[in-house]
């Protein structure tokens, strides 16, 4: 019976796709009832954590609070989520402030019925049927899902990588370029590969730093 319930619940889960509108929701949070559409016009990072009052999650929340100011400078809002009650969230956030001296400035969804978790495929039954994994979904100001990161329960996320990802996405949008491996702001970016032979020949004359016709870099 329990197995049957598990399978049915697994079936209810959907996976969002990059480049498509992020699934809409309305949810109870620590800052009131919030809808996804409330973030229209801003970038949004929706992230999940396995459970309140757990050690790795506490370090991650402190990490997200630490980069909150940098995210705000980039026009990015943060929204957390776990399968806990709003009272648990409030108690945990107060505890983090009292014991660690860190105030959590962003809202956190209390997703007790797993509605949002299932909509975004945040529960990985192979790891845990009752907790969300460490997921990160980046939505742009139009509400399009632009990036996803999934980490297991055991491994805390890298906040600098999340900032780097935002910088890369915003640079791509602003300059219509791509970013190479390990790219950081200020470093050369990649000019999109040519689609025709004519474009391939043309770009070699444009002063880019080209290793070959398909790999050209430029400074912004």
């Amino acid at each position: 019976m329990e197995e049957k319930i598990g399978i049915e619940e697994e079936k209810k889960q959907t996976m969002p796709r990059l480049g498509e509108p992020a699934p809409a929701f309305e949810a109870v949070t620590t800052q009131g009832v919030i809808r996804l559409e409330d973030f229209k016009g801003s970038w949004l990072i929706l992230f999940s954590h396995p459970a309140d009052f757990t050690p790795v999650c506490t370090t991650e929340f402190m990490g997200f609070a630490e980069i909150h100011g940098e995210l705000q400078k980039r026009g990015v809002e943060l929204l957390g989520l776990s399968i806990d009650s709003v009272y648990s969230h409030i108690a945990w956030m107060r505890n983090i402030e009292e014991k660690m001296g860190v105030k959590i400035p962003f809202p956190v969804i209390a997703d007790l019925n797993k509605e949002v978790a299932n909509l975004y495929g945040m529960v990985m039954p192979g790891e845990s049927k009752t907790e969300t994994s460490r997921c990160v979904f980046v939505m742009d100001p139009e509400g399009i899902l632009r990036a996803m990161i999934y980490y297991p329960l055991t491994t805390g996320r890298n906040m600098q990588e999340i900032l780097r990802l935002i910088d890369a996405l915003q640079t791509t949008d602003k300059h219509q370029v791509a970013t190479p491996a390990n790219w950081k702001p200020g470093e050369p970016v990649i000019v999109p590969p040519p689609n025709t032979q004519e474009m391939a020949e043309q770009r070699l004359k444009e002063g880019y730093e080209c290793t070959d016709w398909y790999l050209c870099r430029k400074n912004l």
Partner: peptide, 12 residues
Amino acid sequence: LPLFRGRSGVRD
């Protein structure tokens, strides 16, 4: 308030 709080608050 951030814009998202303004939107949800006005709804309230």
